[in-house]
C-alpha cells in the first residue's frame, strides 16, 4: 500500500459518499445515470467474487463491502424509493448496456491471464469499469443540467483513476516483477475517457461558471 493507492481509494470512496449524500439530502437523483450505477454494480460483483475465496487484508475486505453496499443502495433508491425514483431522468438515460457489456465480455474471454471463471469475470470487470462512466457522461451532455455535486462526483471518480496510474508507476518502480498490462491499459483508457470532462470542469471552476458540456 502506497500513498497514491490510498489516496486513490479514498477519492473513490469520497465520490460515492458525495453521490449518496446528494441523493439523500435533495431526495433527488436528477442528472444521475442509473445505467452507470448498475454497470458499477456488475463491475463490483464480478471483481469481488474473491471476497469468499481470497482474503487479502481487512482493509480490502471492508472497502469491497462498502463499494458493493453503497452502489446497491443508490440503485435501490433510484429504482424503488417512492420519492427519489420519480426524479430519475428515465427518458434521457437511454444508453444501451449491451453496447458496453458484450464487447467487454468478448474481450475478457480472449484477453485474460488465465482461462478460469473467476479470472475471466475479474478481467471482464476491469474492462467494464473502464467504460462504465459513459452513460453518465452522455446523460450529462443531454440534460445539460449539471449540479455541483454531480460534477464533483464525476471529477472525484476521474481523480481516483489518475491516482491509480501514479500508484502503478510507483509500484512498477519499487516492486520487482510488478506487471499487469491488462489492468494498466484499461486504466489508461478509463482515465482518457475523463479528459474531456476534466477540461470543462476545470474551465467552469476557473471562470466561476456553472458547469455545462457542449452538445
Amino acid at each position: 500500500m502506497n500513498l497514491f493507492r490510498l489516496l486513490g481509494d479514498m477519492t473513490h470512496l469520497l465520490s460515492i459518499i458525495v453521490l449518496l449524500l446528494k441523493i439523500n439530502a435533495t431526495r433527488s437523483c436528477r442528472g444521475v445515470s442509473l445505467k452507470t450505477q448498475e454497470l458499477y454494480a456488475i463491475v463490483f460483483v464480478c471483481r469481488y467474487l474473491d471476497l469468499f475465496t481470497n482474503f487479502i487484508s481487512l482493509y480490502n475486505t471492508v472497502m469491497k463491502v462498502i463499494f458493493l453496499g453503497s452502489t446497491f443502495t443508490i440503485i435501490y433508491w433510484m429504482r424503488f424509493h417512492k420519492v427519489i425514483r420519480v426524479t430519475y431522468d428515465r427518458d434521457q438515460d437511454t444508453f444501451r448496456y449491451q453496447f458496453l457489456i458484450i464487447p467487454c465480455l468478448l474481450l475478457s474471454l480472449i484477453l485474460n491471464s488465465e482461462f478460469t471463471v473467476m479470472e475471466v469475470l475479474w478481467t471482464f470487470s476491469i474492462y467494464l469499469e473502464a467504460v462504465a462512466i459513459l452513460p453518465q457522461l452522455v446523460l450529462l451532455q443531454r440534460t445539460n443540467n449539471i449540479d455541483n455535486l454531480t460534477g464533483n462526483y464525476i471529477f472525484l471518480l476521474g481523480s481516483y483513476r489518475a491516482l491509480y496510474i501514479l500508484n502503478w508507476i510507483y509500484r512498477f518502480l519499487t516492486e520487482p516483477n510488478y506487471r499487469q498490462y491488462l489492468v494498466w491499459i484499461s486504466g489508461i483508457v478509463q482515465t482518457i475517457v475523463y479528459i474531456d470532462f476534466f477540461y470543462y470542469y476545470i474551465r467552469s471552476w476557473k471562470n466561476n461558471e456553472k458547469l455545462s458540456l457542449p452538445a
Binding site: R5, D9, H12, D50, N54, I56, S57, N60, M63, K64, F67, S113, E114, E119, W122, Y164, N167, Y178, R179, Q180, Y181, L182, V183
Partner: peptide
C-alpha cells in the same frame, strides 16, 4: 504471470 498482482487492488 500477473495473476497475483492487481488482485490486491480495488
Amino acid at each position: 504471470e500477473d495473476v497475483d498482482f492487481g488482485h490486491d487492488e480495488l
